[in-house]
């Protein structure tokens, strides 16, 4: 446990103090601010119209604003998380610091878990930044917190899947560039696995693929419902890719 935390602590500090993290979080906040403000203002406009005498019931902030915000977080994460995780293992190999890890009294599982936690920490920091927007909205509007928290639980789990995938991509190569590209392709495949099969697939294959697609599960979370199947699915994706990473790290001993 101590080895895992030592590794995670070092890598997390490394990630959070790197210019990369600041560039990414800066650019993300610019995009989020622009889109969030626009959606929120147009929502306010329309609400005012609905509030005219004779019109009953308010509109749903969750569905109109947060849904957009959270899908945008997800969209950016598909691209941004591989960039955050790219160095985790690829650079250790390239600069030969991997030798130190492999000759220290720690197991491959410790290495994979430590690295995963570090990546998770950095992405969660980014998620925390994105959480400022709905939180600030609370100052001007009332809305129920529970669906928002459910949606953020979804963001947390999905970003965990991206981190695990990115970590696995990083373990496959010494090249940081290739690691980003691989991570991106894996992420996109996970997202679109159910697409493009429509028509020529049997209903059962289509149902299986749909279950395997991140999108379906994520949608549930955004709509405010936490389904056990989705939690289990996302946790298994994380577990699978961390396990695959551990296998790749272990394989360095046999090659």
């Amino acid at each position: 446990m101590r080895a895992v935390l030592t590794l995670a602590g070092k890598d997390l500090r490394n990630l959070l103090t790197s210019p990369m993290f600041y560039v990414i979080s800066g650019l993300c906040s610019v995009l989020w601010t622009y889109a969030y403000l626009r959606a929120f203002l147009s929502f306010a406009e329309r609400t005012r119209a609905f509030m005219q005498p004779g019109m009953e019931g308010g509109m749903n902030l969750q569905r109109e604003v947060f849904l957009m915000h959270i899908s945008q977080i997800n969209l950016l994460y598909v691209f941004v998380v591989p960039a955050l995780t790219m160095r985790l293992l690829a650079e250790e190999k390239r600069f030969r610091t991997f030798d130190l890890l492999l000759t220290s009294p720690i197991t491959s599982t410790h290495i994979a878990l430590g690295k995963f936690l570090a990546g998770m920490g950095a992405v969660t920091a980014l998620t925390a930044i994105s959480f400022i927007y709905p939180l600030a909205t609370r100052g001007v509007a009332e809305f129920p917190m529970a669906p928002l928290l459910a949606a953020y639980a979804g963001v947390f789990l999905v970003s965990g899947a991206y981190v695990a995938v990115g970590l696995f991509a990083s373990s496959l190569t010494e090249s940081v560039m290739l690691s980003v590209i691989l991570g991106l392709i894996f992420n996109i495949s996970l997202w679109f696995i159910s697409q493009g099969m429509a028509g020529d697939a049997s209903p059962m294959v289509a149902a299986v693929l749909e279950y395997l697609s991140l999108g379906q599960h994520f949608l549930g979370f955004i709509m405010g419902s936490v389904k056990l199947a989705s939690v289990v699915f996302l946790c298994s994706v994380i577990g699978l890719f961390v396990f695959l990473t551990q296998r790749v790290v272990e394989s360095a001993r046999w090659r």
């Binding site: 600069f95 991997f98 030798d99 130190l100 000759t103 220290s104 009294p105 197991t107």
Partner: peptide, 18 residues
Amino acid sequence: LEVKRRIGYLPETPPVYS
């Protein structure tokens, strides 16, 4: 692990983080 605990190893390229 028992073996690694007892060994200090300096590889050809020093494994340092720049």
